[in-house]
Computed example of a mutant assay.
Amino acid sequence: MNGRLDKAQPYAVGLFRIVVGLLFACHGAASLFGVLGGAAGTGGTLAAGTWPGWYAAVIQLVGGTFVLLGLGTRVAALITSGSMAYAYFDVHQQAALWPIQNGGEASAMFCWAFLLLVFTGSGALGVDRLFAKRSATATGERTSADQTPVAA
């Protein structure tokens, strides 16, 4: 059973990355373009260049899209994780200590989800993986995806 789960792990990480990236990009699109409910649920958009909201929305849209595609996943996840840590500690924690009290649950969850992706990478189904396979093929190396585990 454990072997089957190990084989599915890259796909589970890939699906996790896709969902988290999509949800995060939707936040950015809502804030920047007023779609999907708009900025803060008002249907409006943020004024360009306003600190920190507009910059956070750009990070959400661009970073979320990169994570969704699995393109530069580790770097994009590091930047997005940092932006959510900033949002939590600078915006939410001023109201109360715990996320449930200060409305910072989404910021905290996104922060930790992206931090996990920094360490796991894109998993399966990502553009990063395609580049790794092409690079390995060009140099004649075998990628970890090409290698089959040896039974113990």
Rank of each mutant, 00 (worst) to 15 (best):
115 L>W: 13
77 A>M: 09
30 A>N: 06
7 K>V: 02
84 M>W: 08
64 G>I: 05
100 I>K: 01
57 A>G: 10
49 G>R: 11
15 L>F: 15
137 T>V: 01
113 A>D: 11
38 G>T: 06
4 R>K: 13
100 I>N: 02
85 A>F: 15
10 P>H: 04
56 A>G: 12
128 D>S: 05
23 L>V: 14
107 S>D: 10
25 A>H: 02
115 L>S: 02
115 L>M: 13
65 T>R: 02
104 G>E: 14
25 A>Y: 00
148 T>L: 12
21 G>V: 08
150 V>S: 06
93 Q>S: 09
41 G>W: 15
53 G>F: 13
114 F>S: 03
143 T>K: 07
100 I>H: 02
108 A>D: 00
74 R>K: 12
55 Y>S: 14
117 L>T: 09
30 A>L: 10
4 R>V: 07
59 I>K: 00
42 T>H: 11
102 N>K: 10
87 A>W: 04
75 V>P: 02
125 L>P: 02
102 N>E: 08
49 G>Q: 11
120 T>F: 06
143 T>N: 09
62 V>F: 15
123 G>M: 03
150 V>A: 08
32 L>E: 08
85 A>V: 14
19 V>N: 08
81 S>Q: 08
152 A>I: 04
83 S>M: 14
83 S>Q: 14
128 D>E: 07
61 L>N: 03
112 W>L: 15
2 N>K: 09
60 Q>G: 01
102 N>C: 09
10 P>S: 03
76 A>E: 07
117 L>H: 09
131 F>Q: 07
23 L>Y: 03
16 F>P: 00
118 V>F: 10
34 G>Y: 03
42 T>L: 06
116 L>D: 01
151 A>N: 10
108 A>G: 02
